[in-house]
Amino acid sequence: MSISRDAATNLISAACQYLDDEDWDAFLNICDPAFRYRITVRSPEIKREMIWFNQDYAGLRDMFSVIPEHLRRLGTLLRHVSIGHIEHQAPDMAQVTSTFQCIHTDLEGRSNLLAVGRYLDDVRATSGGLRLAARNTVLATRDLGVGSHVPI
């Protein structure tokens, strides 16, 4: 049975909400052990594809564990996702292409667009339910202001 659109939508919504809430454990719980999170962007300045973030499951877990010690962008992020094409690659695998806007809300409650781009998500059906097997965030935005200690 192939992965339904509803199930994929729920998984991607949950992934974004856990990241928004900075509930790192919950986020890792819906990721496959082989999960990889990449953020890529094309630079017209040097005419190259660049990788700005690239962590596997263990790397993310280590990184998340140190987050509270860092001086970080204040406020919260909200990842607004619109799910587009779902391509079924195998009975238990699908690639989901979404567009997203990541909105930053500061401590005064003012919201500003931080970044836009596409999520290319690999989702896998397992006996424990649907898992995120890979995320490639393809950024259109290249000026991220102060940047971010957490992936977008």
């Binding site: 990788i51 001086l71 940047g147 957490v150």
Partner: peptide, 24 residues
């Protein structure tokens, strides 16, 4: 080199966002 660069200096690195925040 991409990995080492990103650790400190990328927009999702550990250092550069802190320096930018400090300036702001």
């Amino acid at each position: 080199r991409t990995e080492h660069y990103n650790q400190y200096w990328g927009p999702f690195g550990r250092n550069v966002p802190e320096d930018l925040m400090a300036a702001e």
